[in-house]
Design a protein around this nucleic acid. Structure first.
Length: 916
RNA sequence: GGGCCUGUAGCUCAGUUGGUUAGAGCGCCACGCUUACACCGUGGAUGUCGGGGGUUCGAGUCCCUCCGGGCCCACCA
């Protein structure tokens, strides 16, 4: 029968305890006279580095490995308190799993792909990326900007154009500096990262992975190109994806505009916030059931000012309650227009250019004299000035009913942009993500159900997003910096580019830059000439690279031996705001390439809120620098604050919590110093401690260890369930009782009251051994959260690093406490509190002797108090009688505290104050 | 409009499947330099568990409803 099977809850006799754990012997040496947290970060960071404490052992098998898909922070941004918070959560898990016996693969990445880096490189070096230029060997940029951007950014016209490859090189040079600072912060915080496994999202490996994954998608028809109307940012002049949208309020005006029925009937009024799109109008649309417009369906009306005849059509997407209930459909004002255009097979009449301005060519569908004249007035203008011009004309012609009414409307914005998105028709690349395909969508929803979300309710965000997709993932971007789409197109004899059958590179040649590299079978002089080729100019969306972080970090195809040991990974830690982007896109890529999840678990951290309960942000000026925080409070303290917040829950930025963490860390040092201070040979300053459960014989000691055994089991269970907060709380609560009550109660006995150091009796040895066993366990319980303090103490009496020590089991404590009742310590603690209260109320020192006392004890607590009576007398300094009188008050554990009171006492003289 | 989270002591938060008198820390008050710790210790005070209904022998916990915070999605006529 198993030693700890649930069928046998009371393994009290030795033969049910199973094989005894190996008895640990430790030699205490090097406990300092005064303990301190100061400087521990630097000391142990260096030692861990030097000793390879966190080095990943790649001989381990997949089952032995715990792999983490670390979020790569954006290097061009700055790290803030929120990063410290969430990265601590991950590190706590990493350290727990490592001690649990898993070989932890914990790499670090840097995200240096994307717009923030592009802008920073531009401004810092005074360059601009122009993919059409050739690579220049040994290029030196015209300037070295200042780190804080105080040097003024050069104007676009002053920026020196450089090739994409040169631009990427400059990016790597610049971000190398950022990375050093970031690494220094992470080391100071104590992240147990293996720094030999790091990556950048723009480096050659990442580009290779991103291009290879794309080519595989293309080969399986999961990537495709399409010419279609899509959301377009006019500032950055690039298409944007659904996941990058942000709906924002945007001021506008309703304009009531008259259309004129071709049969000469009464004018039809529509309401629009975009009157400048009047020349792009292709139809009026109302709901098929709308009584008001039944008579118009099937007829045509003529647009005001521009005199274009358009049909009046019925479509269920029209909402009778919006505006006038009948809408003007333009190509394109919004996504509803696109839907109507597609489903009602309307013509295309685009007038907005990619720069957001009105087309400079008068469209051929404008035929009347006045329409062509008016268009000539607005051509090349921004939508804003064109709107003014059109409204003035409408007012003059009498087609504007009333005056425009101000409104706040919601408009789609690119999350990094500040102008509303337009809809522009362009050729773009897409990756299938279930947005247009119910079967794939269901598969991806299935992956979401397979994934362990922590906390679990975050799964809903995934499901809502996947369920609400309205199109495939647009991955091409009309930017210059980024990972190039690795394709070329043939140029026909007549000079037209043949997009339909792209030329693909060999995987072995990756990464390629089609703007400078030449496709297989062609020579460089065939670029851009009839019969030759052109390179795809677009780059991939940053998520197209970030969605591959497990592949990038894990060595997909580059290091198959590593990859099979770490993939699929165990954990993706990340923020809740990027479930729809990073988390989902990573699931998509893994599902398409491997038919599996990229990881088994996702740990979602919350936000840090400032004291006003607002999300902390730079603009509010309430950002505290992380390094300053670590320097002020110490890393263990800051980690404690972070670890006190549950996953998925927003947490307050609270210095008070850090002070508590610091107090805990110092307490660990001091209590450890005390627990290890016995048995030290006064001559040599060293001593051996044997953690032999058989030496623990006193009932109080056994009760303490029985409680500790429960704590280990509960904390382990919590950690296994990704509930580090609960694990910490359980350990911490026990630890404070351990310090406040147990240490005080056993102090005299542990000192060997009366006996010489060499003449240690069984009771004293019991206390000392129990202290050592408890310390051995407690240090390891706290190690994930307080890596520095626990490592410091570990070094006083143990060999190796506590962070490579096995996670504690309850075995030793159970072996030492078989049959003991944790309530004995509880009762003794309450009895001690009762004695202390007498002195506290008498306002005398705790050293004051109690000459005689009578203690009321509930029946339930009596046995416990009695078994600890000697310790109790010592800790309470009871020199005379201590009588117990049984009370009937209360039942059960909760009543014990209330019932345990001193009913009569006689205090001695307070000890004379010592001088000095 | 759809959805998720959240409301417990002045503050930050626990409160496991409903079960005696709702907890912790900080802060506050009082006392105490006690050979682990003054970066400390001891003791104490503090609550209409957001409001209102309901289920139940019993509700902080379950249900309904309303109110207050936070977030996601949809919303461009």
């Amino acid at each position: 029968m198993s030693a700890f099977s649930s069928a046998d809850p009371t393994p009290s006799s030795p033969d049910t305890v199973g094989s005894a754990p190996d008895v640990v012997r430790a030699v205490v040496s090097g406990v300092p006279d005064r303990v301190s947290l100061d400087g521990l970060e630097a000391t142990y960071d260096a030692r861990w580095s030097e000793q390879g404490t966190y080095a990943f052992d790649r001989t381990k098998t997949r089952a032995e490995v715990y792999s983490i898909d670390t979020p790569p922070p954006t290097v061009s941004g700055s790290l803030h308190v929120g990063h410290v918070f969430s990265y601590t959560h991950t590190d706590v898990v990493a350290r727990f799993q490592r001690m649990r016996g898993r070989e932890v693969f914990y790499p670090m990445g840097w995200d240096d792909n994307g717009l923030p880096t592009e802008r920073r490189v531009q401004n810092f070096y005074g360059v601009r990326c122009d993919p059409s230029l050739p690579y220049v060997e040994g290029f030196e940029p015209p300037q070295q900007g200042s780190e804080d951007g105080s040097g003024k950014a050069p104007k676009l016209s002053d920026q020196v154009p450089v090739s994409r490859r040169n631009f990427i090189e400059l990016c790597e040079r610049l971000t190398g500096e950022d990375e050093k600072q970031f690494e220094a912060l992470w080391r100071r915080l104590g992240l147990s990262v293996d720094w030999s496994h790091h990556y950048q999202t723009i480096d050659a490996n990442a580009r290779t992975v991103a291009q290879r994954a794309f080519l595989r998608n293309l080969a399986r028809d999961e990537a495709y190109q399409a010419e279609a109307p899509g959301l377009w940012d006019v500032t950055f002049q690039t298409a944007v994806a659904q996941a990058e949208l942000e709906a924002r309020e945007y001021p506008g005006h309703f304009h009531k505009v008259a259309f004129h029925p071709s049969d000469g009937g009464a004018p039809v009024h529509i309401e629009t916030t975009r009157p400048e799109l009047l020349p792009a109008c292709v139809a009026l649309v109302a709901h098929p059931d709308d009584e008001r417009y039944q008579h118009l369906f099937g007829t045509t009306v003529t647009s005001p000012l521009f005199d274009v005849e358009v049909p009046v059509l019925a479509h269920p997407a029209a909402e009778p309650t919006k505006g006038a209930g009948i809408a003007m459909c333009c190509t394109f004002g919004d996504l509803t227009d696109v839907q109507w255009w597609r489903e009602l097979q309307l013509p295309t009449r685009s007038i907005i250019q990619r720069d957001g301005r009105i087309s400079r060519e008068t469209p051929e569908w404008l035929t009347s004299e006045r329409s062509r004249a008016l268009f000539a007035e607005i051509e090349g203008k921004t939508t804003f000035s064109a709107r003014t011009a059109v409204v003035d004309a409408l007012r003059a012609s009498g087609d504007l009913a009333g005056e425009p009414v101000a409104t706040q409307r919601m408009a789609n914005f690119f999350e990094k942009g500040d102008k509303p998105l337009e809809i522009v028709t362009s050729r773009q690349w897409y990756i299938r993500n279930g947005g247009r395909d119910a079967a794939l969508r269901d598969e991806l929803l299935g992956r979401g159900r397979e994934l362990g979300f922590h906390p679990d309710f975050m799964r809903v965000r995934y499901e809502n997003w996947v369920g609400g997709l309205n199109g495939d993932w647009l991955v091409s971007r009309q930017r210059f910096f980024g990972v190039a789409i690795p394709l070329w197109y043939r140029v026909g004899a007549d000079g037209t580019v043949e997009h339909d059958d792209p030329i693909v590179p060999d995987e072995a040649s990756l990464p390629v830059d089609p703007s400078s590299d030449v496709p297989p079978g062609y020579s460089a002089d065939q670029r851009g000439v009839p019969g030759g080729f052109v390179g795809e100019a677009d780059v991939m969306d940053t998520w197209a690279t970030s969605s591959l972080t497990p592949q990038i970090a894990g060595g997909w195809e580059r290091d198959p031996d590593l990859f099979e040991r770490v993939f699929p990974m165990d954990l993706r830690p990340q923020g809740q705001d990027i479930i729809r982007t990073w988390l989902f896109s990573t699931v998509v890529r893994s599902h398409l390439e491997f038919g599996s999840l990229p990881w088994a678990n996702a740990a979602i951290s919350g936000w840090i809120l400032d004291p006003d309960r607002k999300k902390m942000s730079k603009s509010k000026g309430n950002v505290v620098t992380p390094m300053g925080l670590l320097e002020e409070h110490g890393s263990d303290a800051v980690r404690y604050w972070a670890a006190s917040a549950r996953l998925g829950t927003d947490a307050a930025f609270e210095v008070g919590q850090m002070k508590i963490g610091r107090r805990l860390a110092i307490k660990v040092l001091n209590a450890s110093k005390f627990a290890l201070s016995f048995g030290v040979d006064p001559e040599s300053g060293t001593g051996e401690i044997t953690l032999d459960p058989a030496l623990v014989t006193a009932e109080l000691d056994r009760a303490m260890l029985a409680g500790l055994a429960d704590v280990v089991d509960r904390a382990t269970e919590a950690f296994d369930a990704y509930d580090h907060t609960r694990a910490l709380e359980i350990s911490e609560t026990f630890f404070w009782t351990f310090c406040d009550d147990y240490l005080e109660l056993v102090k005299d006995r542990a000192y060997g009251a009366g006996a010489g150091a060499a003449d240690v009796n069984a009771a004293t040895r019991s206390a000392r051994t129990a202290l050592a066993i408890a310390l051995d366990v407690l240090l390891r319980l706290f190690a994930p959260v307080l890596p520095f303090a626990t490592e410091e103490v570990w070094g006083w009496w143990r060999t190796g690093s506590v962070h490579r020590a096995p996670w504690p089991t309850s075995d030793v404590a159970r072996a030492a406490s078989a049959g003991a009742d944790p309530a004995v310590l509880t009762a003794a603690g309450h009895a001690l509190a009762a004695l202390r209260k007498v002195k506290s109320e008498a306002k005398v020192s705790m050293r004051t002797p109690i000459l005689a006392a009578e203690l009321a004890v509930p029946a339930a607590a009596r046995a416990g108090v009695e078994s600890a009576l000697v310790d109790l007398r010592g800790a309470g300094r009871v020199t005379g009688t201590l009588d117990l009188v049984e009370t009937t008050e209360g039942q059960g554990d909760a009543a014990v505290q209330g019932g345990l009171v001193v009913v009569r006492s006689e205090l001695g003289e307070p000890e004379a104050r010592r001088k000095g």
